[in-house]
């Protein structure tokens, strides 16, 4: 029999408690955050949970005690996203950024044991909710993708690089810590540069209608980097990721206008950075089944 059926009341209590934590915060709790003003109050369910389950003390009533957990939940998650998306905050501006983050947390709960993964759904959420992007939906979405890739790259594994002599014949893959992007907007410049929303708009206006921006996000010597790629370089890397074969990658990208010298320089750079590696081979688990 499952724990669910063994302990239905305890499971129900924990569900109710979690639902209370995930409600928006109001009043004094909200004033201690950067969230924009929002009228309202916690739901009757929140109040009923506190009244029914939690003891009051002379110092704090049941509602205040539940509210301590409620506000800590929000403060912790808001801080985590603020830390992971600093450039997005800059280009959206304070009000729009915090409105977006609050909406995201209301709709997309954390599904990971670690706060490092909290922002995993933010780029897609932005794409689905362009009205939350302060008039810059494409730029904001692409910048969010870039910033989350930096978080993701931080803890991705490293696989053995393929020696130069074996590149032509070996099965190839790209390092798991390497992420490739073809963006409409200069997300790398937005990430590095503008101090605020209007400066971001100026930058976007200058680049409006320009060619696609190809980027690599990767880790090297324990630091994350963002590097712009030539279109041909991006195409070959992307083809290697898809086919696992250097010959097929070069065939499929034969239309690229790159010269032999350029291609040679790209390969030299990739091998120096160790980007071309062996594909993942499934390893049998050494731990017993639970």
């Amino acid at each position: 029999m499952s724990a669910e059926t063994n302990h239905p009341r305890l499971v129900a209590l924990q569900r109710e408690f979690m639902a209370a934590l995930r409600e928006p915060i109001y009043g004094g709790s909200r004033e201690l955050t950067a969230l924009p003003a929002r009228a309202g109050a916690v739901s009757p369910a929140f109040t009923a949970l506190a009244d029914r389950e939690i003891r009051s003390t002379p110092a704090l009533d049941a509602h205040e005690r539940l509210e301590l957990y409620h506000r800590q939940y929000w403060y912790r998650l808001l801080d985590a996203l603020d830390e992971d998306f600093p450039a997005l905050r800059r280009i959206l501006g304070e009000t729009a950024f915090w409105r977006l983050i609050e909406a995201y947390l209301e709709h997309v709960p954390s599904r990971s044991y670690t706060l490092r993964h909290l922002g995993v759904g933010l780029p897609d959420f932005l794409q689905l909710n362009p009205g939350l992007a302060a008039g810059r939906p494409v730029a904001a979405t692409e910048l969010a993708r870039l910033e989350y890739a930096l978080c993701d790259s931080f803890e991705a594994p490293v696989r053995p690089p393929v020696p130069v002599a074996a590149l032509a014949t070996a099965e190839l893959a790209l390092q798991p810590y390497l992420r490739l992007f073809a963006f409409y907007t200069p997300a790398d410049e937005l990430w590095r540069g503008p101090a605020g929303p209007s400066a971001a708009d100026d930058l976007l206006a200058m680049r409006d209608g320009g060619p696609a921006v190809h980027l690599a996000v990767f880790r090297h010597q324990a630091r994350q980097h963002v590097q712009r790629l030539a279109p041909g370089s991006y195409a070959i890397l992307q083809a290697i990721a898809e086919t696992g074969s250097l010959a097929q990658a070069l065939d499929s990208t034969a239309a690229t206008t790159a010269t032999a010298t350029e291609v040679s320089a790209w390969f030299q750079s990739w091998t120096e950075l160790g980007w071309l590696c062996e594909p993942e081979t499934p390893v049998p688990s050494s731990t017993p089944a639970i």
Binding site: M18, Y73, S112, L115
Partner: peptide
Amino acid sequence: VDGTYSHD
């Protein structure tokens, strides 16, 4: 609970 984490 139900795969949603409070981080608390």
